[in-house]
Design a protein around this nucleic acid. Structure first.
Length: 450
RNA sequence: GUGGUAGUAGCUCAGUUGGUUAGAGCGUUGGAUUGUGGCUCCGAAGGUCGCGGGUUCGAGUCCCGUCUAUCACCCCA
């Protein structure tokens, strides 16, 4: 019978251990950082009623959403992001949760768009959000979490770009552009990429007069330190209450970041960051990698004060951001920062003497009880082959015991990096083995640092 | 969804104006003194040349379609 070609859907991927191990590590880091700030975990279904999901992001997001009719005739959508389901979740459960409520959610989302480097149809987002407070404190905390998160992951060169929708709204209002806001913001967003002439052309196509187009270009061209930009923006929005509020919040945010000791190079006010998602109402964030800006934003978010209003009359303002796990991993891979062969376990136990199986498992449990992972080789192959396997999988230490050692109740502990081995007695006193391991692990840690 | 580029072993690629059994390196695997790894040497496995159709005596090589990847548009993590 004809074989079915084994393959995955366009934009969907399998993950081999070499990819999955760093992937899990990243999720673990995100969890740790989120918990450190008091965010708690939740989960929601992959599928929602279509009406819950559509019309919340933008026309484009609706077009990219996977949807179908289920066997009961219900219109069903696959979640496009984690923010919209969270707004639904909060509206539904807020009486049990109380406000403010801070949650994180690490889960896959699906978008039916054309795949590219760092863009997939199924990818994991690591969201954290705060709901039920409009204060600038949560704006600040969101930025601090983004910063700490990337730092914890071990990325040095990144920049959080910050803007505020209120400021943009004030600008649009002043120019009489409220009705073409989408086109204007889109053009603004492209400024850095395509340049002023192209943007101007686009603006004119969108029906702006020369005066209006020039004002947009002037906005896009604003440059300077964060403080300089703040004062320029303040002048621009003078007299507009919303705009003044936005500028003030940006000012509070940047001064808090400075006070928290976040290096100036790590964040920057950027008036061209607009974000396509319609639900943002205040501060917006995008984070780009200094070494690979072309992959796009790896951590984005912002304030959405009206999103839950679609599901409840209760006022539930929110703010949050999302780390794009798969995009970040794609970037790290391109930068050669993903180890080719990640370690499967710390300690390798050679199966030397087939009659000693019980002892090998006893050794393994001593190692595990001491806090390390251990693996017993499943066959009594030649020792050279077993050591080669151990070497290739990145084990740090091998335990070797043949019939001689087993008879004496000893085992050879071998540091695989330094090729140094010592023999210890373990049968009478297992603590000797864990002690010797501790010493050896410390030694190999030192060599790693050197 | 639209357009550009690409598609040969698990990976990186070679394959001369279309010509007979499609190659290399790395990796995998076995061996080179029945107790010690990353080096070396020898051997082996592994390819419907992405898939389908067409032109031709003959197609990995030319043409068309299709799928996938990638880039751009669009949007975004």
């Amino acid at each position: 019978m004809a074989l079915i070609e084994p393959r995955t859907l366009k934009g969907f991927r399998d993950f081999l251990p070499a990819q999955m191990i760093p992937r899990e590590k990243l999720m673990e880091t995100a969890r740790t950082v989120y918990r450190r700030y008091g965010f708690v975990p939740i989960d929601t279904p992959a599928l929602e009623l279509l009406e819950v999901l559509t019309g919340k992001g933008s026309e484009e997001t609706d077009r990219q959403m996977y949807h179908f009719t289920d066997a009961g005739g219900r219109e069903v959508g696959m979640r496009f992001d984690l923010t919209v389901p969270f707004a639904r979740f909060a509206a539904q459960h807020i009486n049990e949760l109380g406000t403010p409520f801070k949650r994180y959610h690490i889960a896959p989302v699906w978008r039916g768009e054309t795949p590219q480097a760092g863009r997939f149809r199924e990818f994991v987002q690591c969201d954290f959000d705060t709901i039920g407070t409009t204060g600038v404190v949560s704006d600040i905390e969101t930025a601090l979490v983004i910063h700490e998160l990337l730092q914890a992951i071990g990325i040095d060169q990144f920049q959080i770009r910050i803007n505020n929708r209120q400021v943009l709204a004030a600008f649009l209002q002043a120019q009489g552009l409220e009705n073409s806001s989408t086109a204007v913001l889109r053009a603004l967003d492209k400024f850095e990429k395509v340049g002023g002439d192209q943007v101007k052309k686009e603006l004119e196509n969108a029906g702006l007069n020369a005066l209006q187009a020039d004002s947009v270009l002037a906005l896009a061209a604003m440059r300077g330190s964060n403080d300089e930009l703040l004062s320029q923006l303040a002048t621009m929005v003078t007299g507009n209450e919303i705009g003044e509020q936005g500028v003030q919040r940006l000012r509070d945010l940047t001064s808090a970041l400075r006070a928290a000791g976040v290096p100036e190079s790590r964040y920057r006010i950027d008036v061209s960051i607009a974000r396509g998602l319609d639900y943002y109402t205040g501060v917006v964030f995008e984070t780009t990698l200094g070494e690979l800006p072309s992959i796009g934003s790896i951590c984005s978010g912002g304030r959405y004060d009206n999103l839950a209003g679609l599901y409840t009359k209760q006022y539930l303002p929110g703010i949050g951001a999302s780390l794009g796990l798969d995009r970040l991993l794609a970037a790290l891979e391109q930068l050669g920062r993903i180890p080719k062969q990640p370690r499967s376990a710390d300690v390798f136990i050679a199966l030397f003497d087939p009659n000693g199986i019980n002892d090998y498992f006893r050794l393994a449990s001593i190692v595990r009880a001491a806090g390390w992972s251990a693996e017993v080789f499943p066959e009594s192959k030649k020792l050279a082959q077993q050591l080669k396997y151990a070497d290739q999988r990145g084990f740090r230490v091998a335990l070797i015991a043949g019939s001689d050692e087993l008879a004496k109740g000893t085992v050879q502990i071998k540091d695989l990096m330094n090729k140094i081995s010592t023999e210890v007695e373990w049968r009478e006193n297992p603590e000797q083995l864990s002690q010797a391991l501790r010493t050896m692990m410390r030694l190999s840690d030192d060599t790693l640092l050197a």
